[in-house]
């Protein structure tokens, strides 16, 4: 009897000690491995132009989700219509994460230029989120192209004029008819409809 119990005691101790050596899961299932991430970074397909964004806003594309990654005070001063504010420094919090990975939505990061937006994109891509984009040139480019488009010279091709007319019309749409010098368009700070991820529910139980 005693020898058996001794054996069982040691076995149980080994099992308990074994739990220490269970490795922490390195890669959460959906994370993007570093190698793949580097490949993604070199692709230009993550960029969307300010023209594309303007078009989506004007057409009220329901899949568009604009994410302003600048600090909150800048967001409050001026931002794109219906943009959500996820400051870059807070991007890893669960609340911020709720804005990513929503089914069928295309998230477009933007900042003043595109440096912060790019960083947000890389971080999010590493976590495995798909359907994420960066607005090339950021808000500075937005001002230059949409709000204050430059009239192309007479020798420019037809398409340049088309783009210019589109931009002028878009500019009027966004500013209500006044061309603006500074970034302070006083644009309607539209009520932001925030769609968040459905929270997965844990089991309930009791005594």
């Amino acid at each position: 009897m005693n020898k058996n119990y001794l054996f069982l005691t040691i076995l149980m101790l080994l099992l308990a000690v074994g739990t220490f050596f269970i490795p922490k899961k390195q890669l959460v299932k959906h994370e993007r491995s570093p190698e793949k991430l580097l490949m993604d970074i070199t692709q230009p397909s993550r960029y969307v132009t300010t023209d594309q964004v303007a078009k989506m806003i004007i057409e009220q594309d329901p899949t568009l989700e604009l994410i302003d990654v600048r600090p909150a005070d800048e967001y409050n001063k001026f931002t794109l219509p219906d943009a959500v504010n996820v400051p870059l420094k807070d991007i890893l919090t669960p609340e911020s994460q709720d804005n990513l990975g929503i089914e069928d939505m295309n998230a477009v990061f933007f900042s003043n230029d595109d440096i912060m937006a790019d960083q947000a994109w890389v971080i999010s891509r590493r976590m495995g989120y798909k359907n994420i984009y960066v607005m090339k040139g950021g808000l500075n480019c937005w001002i230059e192209t949409i709000i204050n488009p430059v009239e192309p010279p007479e020798t420019a091709p037809e398409t340049a004029f088309e783009t210019y007319h589109f931009r002028k019309a878009a500019g009027i749409y966004f500013t209500g008819g006044n061309t603006v010098q500074t970034g302070d368009t006083g644009t309607k700070k539209a009520k932001v409809k925030v769609r968040r991820k459905k929270k997965e529910k844990a089991a309930s139980g009791g005594c």
Binding site: T9, L13, A16
Partner: peptide
């Protein structure tokens, strides 16, 4: 961390059994 509790309870339990 949890393994410490699993181990701790195991040691105490086994000692108690003897």
């Amino acid at each position: 961390a949890a393994p410490w509790f699993a181990f701790g309870f195991t040691v105490v339990a086994l000692a108690a059994f003897w």
